[in-house]
Amino acid sequence: MNGDAAPRRIWLCADDYGLSPGINRAIRDLIGRGRLNATSVMVVGPAAGRDEIEALNEAAAKSPRCAIGLHATLTAPFHPLTMHFRPLEGGLFVPFAKLLRAGLMRRLDPEIIRAEVAAQLAAFVEKFGRPPDFVDGHQHVQLFPQVRDGFLAAVKQAAPDAWVRQGGRAHSLRQRLRSPKALLLDLLSVQFRHYAARANIAFNPAFAGAYDFSHAPDFAGLMQQFVENLPDGGLIMCHPGFVDDTLKRLDPLTDQREREHAYLAGDAFPRLLHANNVTLA
Rank of each mutant, 00 (worst) to 15 (best):
residue 2 N to Y: 15
residue 8 R to F: 04
residue 10 I to M: 07
residue 13 C to P: 06
residue 17 Y to T: 08
residue 18 G to A: 11
residue 19 L to F: 02
residue 23 I to M: 11
residue 30 L to G: 09
residue 31 I to M: 13
residue 36 L to E: 00
residue 38 A to F: 02
residue 42 M to Q: 06
residue 42 M to Y: 12
residue 43 V to D: 11
residue 47 A to F: 07
residue 50 R to C: 01
residue 52 E to S: 08
residue 54 E to C: 15
residue 60 A to P: 05
residue 61 A to Y: 12
residue 67 A to W: 02
residue 68 I to V: 14
residue 75 T to Y: 04
residue 76 A to I: 06
residue 76 A to L: 05
residue 77 P to C: 09
residue 84 H to L: 12
residue 85 F to P: 00
residue 86 R to G: 05
residue 87 P to S: 11
residue 87 P to R: 15
residue 90 G to D: 01
residue 91 G to F: 03
residue 96 F to R: 14
residue 97 A to R: 15
residue 98 K to V: 13
residue 99 L to S: 08
residue 104 L to T: 05
residue 105 M to P: 09
residue 108 L to V: 08
residue 109 D to F: 03
residue 117 V to R: 03
residue 119 A to I: 04
residue 120 Q to W: 09
residue 124 F to A: 09
residue 124 F to S: 07
residue 127 K to T: 00
residue 132 P to N: 02
residue 136 D to T: 07
residue 136 D to C: 07
residue 143 L to F: 06
residue 154 A to I: 01
residue 159 A to K: 01
residue 159 A to M: 05
residue 165 R to D: 07
residue 171 H to I: 13
residue 173 L to E: 12
residue 174 R to G: 13
residue 176 R to Q: 14
residue 177 L to K: 11
residue 182 A to P: 00
residue 184 L to Q: 02
residue 184 L to N: 01
residue 188 L to H: 07
residue 191 Q to W: 11
residue 191 Q to N: 13
residue 192 F to V: 00
residue 198 R to G: 05
residue 201 I to L: 15
residue 202 A to S: 12
residue 210 A to D: 12
residue 210 A to N: 12
residue 211 Y to H: 08
residue 222 L to H: 02
residue 224 Q to Y: 11
residue 225 Q to Y: 09
residue 231 P to T: 04
residue 234 G to W: 03
residue 236 I to H: 09
residue 237 M to Y: 07
residue 237 M to D: 09
residue 242 F to I: 10
residue 244 D to L: 05
residue 245 D to N: 12
residue 248 K to P: 01
residue 250 L to K: 09
residue 251 D to E: 14
residue 252 P to I: 06
residue 256 Q to G: 11
residue 263 Y to L: 08
residue 263 Y to Q: 03
residue 264 L to E: 14
residue 266 G to T: 12
residue 269 F to T: 04
residue 271 R to S: 11
